[in-house]
């Protein structure tokens, strides 16, 4: 994917190209492209006049940033204690089987990204699966099918 420099410029200018706003800028780029293309990081480094390795360090430090393209549907399976004891592992295994990917990967058609998270703060609803910011509580392996079919 080629990166539209004018779009990056407008994001960077929004923060007056301040090095201190690096995280905010990366967040906006991530929102725009669903991931952080390497060229965009190079461009940000040159515009903010900071070392490339610093941008790379920040981009790899935070889990919210991804250097690999993500799927359109992002599925987060909560593996926190409460969800774990109520069987989130089986939910995850079912998702991995259905999507034919491992946790952390993206399907080949770029449709789904499956990830595990450690707690989404909705322990009473456990096991929780978050699909594109939408919370699905009391998940079971059977309900996974409905989730993937968009019901």
């Amino acid at each position: 994917m080629t990166v539209d420099e004018s779009r990056l410029d407008s994001i960077i200018d929004e923060y007056n190209a301040e090095p201190g706003s690096l995280i905010s800028i990366l967040q906006d780029i991530q929102a725009e492209y669903n991931y952080l293309p390497a060229e965009s990081l190079e461009y940000v480094a040159s515009r903010l006049n900071i070392p490339r390795v610093q941008v790379f360090g920040v981009a790899t430090f935070f889990k919210a940033f991804s250097l690999k393209p993500k799927g359109k549907q992002q599925i987060h399976v909560c593996m926190g204690t409460a969800c774990h004891v109520r069987g989130s592992k089986r939910v995850l295994e079912e998702l991995e089987r259905k999507l034919e990917i491992k946790a952390g990967d993206t399907t080949e058609n770029g449709e789904y990204t499956l990830e595990t998270v450690n707690c989404v703060g909705a322990c009473a609803l456990g096991p929780v699966v978050v699909e594109n910011e939408e919370y699905h509580g009391q998940m079971t392996p059977i309900k996974v099918e409905n989730l993937l079919n968009g019901k």
Binding site: P51, V53, T60
Partner: peptide, 25 residues
């Protein structure tokens, strides 16, 4: 030169060049 730095975090932290590639710097 600022050619190397930290990447990742926690147990996955490591020292590298930008994008894990030979660095121009």
């Amino acid at each position: 030169a600022k050619a190397i730095g930290f990447a990742g975090r926690g147990t996955d932290r490591y020292i590298t060049t930008p994008f894990d590639m030979t660095s121009e710097e």
